[in-house]
Each structure stands twice: as structure tokens, then as C-alpha cells.
Design a protein around this nucleic acid. Structure first.
Lengths: 117, 117
DNA sequence: CTCATGGATTGACATCCATCGATATTCCTG
DNA sequence: CAGGAATATCGATGGATGTCAATCCATGAG
């Protein structure tokens, strides 16, 4: 499940009136993206990886600045990958994570499209 | 507590190296804003109020389209107000909620400032 | 003043989630 | 193949959260 959502057309017009608000399906999909950002440690992870000179980081580099255990960091990274904000590239024993360039902007546009007609 | 955050300068340089990533305090403050958006019903509330012709809505108009009880809707609205996304104006017996224009953009800029140097 | 109505608050309950310890998996090295 | 290292996964647990029923508060009507 990704966070790239730009569903604007109501494909299920159960109410005859024109739907100008987010339907429950689109809202749930949008919430998945925001849920991934609703944790301080995940936000820090994003900024840590983005601030890296090579644009990528492995788990071993991220556990220490967060003060969390390796399984917890791995879990947070998985959440961010599933939401479409990070990509994982495995090279040897190490997993390198990088930020997906337009993911945050896309998520935000998906919401502002509804709040600013 | 509001969501308007643009803290960029480290006012507490406990580590001698230059801090290029989000500190824990800023991350927690940012997460409050995203937590408020991490719920489908709250996202729908935002779009419902924004889609209103007058730009405002009272609780009685919002309970039916959400299919939630009045206390629950009131709770969600409070979360959005506390996060700085909505304002409440009480006129008579009714409470009218409106969206704060630049709040979402500010929250997003606060994160993208860190992820795109 | 009394009552009705819209909304906010409280308490309870079920569920979700962040975190950790332990374990499994994958890959490199010798 | 044996061993070690980096990471992912699993199970458990304490805390946070969404929801509702009941109640309280404030305002307008009579």
C-alpha cells in the first residue's frame, strides 16, 4: 500500500448530490500516509536519512542517534517504506534506506486539493 | 499548543557537531500536527468544513455525514483546533468551525525544510 | 425562573501502537 | 560447511487513542 493518492473523481456516487468532500475510502488512504508521519522518531529518521551526504543510511547508523533498539528502528523504517516515503536497497548484509523525492509533496497535495477548491 | 513551527536554529547545541537533523523536541512538536491528521474522520471533517459555502460548519451539520456521535465529533474537532488547523467561534448556542488558511502549508514546510536542504 | 437545545466534558472500554527481548533469516568470511 | 554480523520478524506488554453513554454547561425561548 502506497501513499500516492490523487483520487478526485467519485467512482461510487451512492448519494445523488455532487460529492465535494473526501469519501471514507479516500480518507482512510490519506490517513495511512499521515499516520506514518505521526511519530517523532519516524520524523527524525526521515530527516537523518535526508541529511546524509550520500542520501542513504543503514540501520546501524540510525539506532544510535535515536536511542532506540535495532528492532524498533527496523520497524519504523518498514512503516515509512510501506507508506512510500522511503525505499530500501539491500547491498550485502546491509540495508540502505533513501527518501522518495516527491512522496511528501504528493501526500500534501492530495489533502490540499480537498481543502482549497 | 499550536502547529506553527519553523525552528531551524539549534538553540541547545549539546553536541559540538553541527546539527543538521531534527532534534527530539522539534520532532515531537511536528508529530503533534501530523497526529491530528492521522485519522480518517478528522481528514473528512477538514474537507467538509472547507467545502462549506460559508467556510464554516457547526457540530450538528457534521455528525450525520460522518456517522459518529456528537461527543466523538466534538472530540475530533477539539484535536484539530488544538493542532491549529481549525478555529472555533461560538455564536449563540452554536459553535462554528473554520479552517485556518495556512496551517497545513506551514506544517508541511516545517518538515520539508529538514528533508530538502 | 424554567425548560429545551447545542455543545463540551467525563468515564469506561476496546483497540491500536511503540517498544523491547528473543529468534529467524540472509549474507559474507574463513 | 561453520561462524559471525546486520537485519527482519515474532510475541508480549504498557501506554496512547477512538468511540460511546451519561452528564454537565451555556444560551435562547417562554
Amino acid at each position: 500500500m502506497t501513499a500516492q493518492i490523487d483520487c478526485k473523481v467519485p467512482q461510487d456516487p451512492q448519494s445523488p448530490e455532487d460529492r465535494v468532500a473526501l469519501d471514507s475510502e479516500g480518507a482512510a488512504e490519506l490517513a495511512v500516509g499521515f499516520k506514518a508521519l505521526a511519530d517523532p522518531n519516524r520524523l527524525t529518521l526521515l530527516t537523518l536519512i535526508a541529511a546524509d551526504a550520500a542520501g542513504e543510511a543503514c540501520v546501524c547508523d540510525l539506532t544510535e542517534p535515536l536511542g532506540l533498539g535495532q528492532p524498533t528502528v527496523s520497524h519504523h523504517l518498514k512503516v515509512l517504506v510501506d507508506a512510500g516515503f522511503l525505499t530500501r536497497e539491500k547491498r550485502g548484509t546491509w540495508s540502505y534506506y533513501s527518501v522518495v523525492p516527491g512522496a511528501l509533496q504528493d501526500l500534501f497535495n492530495s489533502l490540499t486539493d480537498w481543502t482549497t477548491p
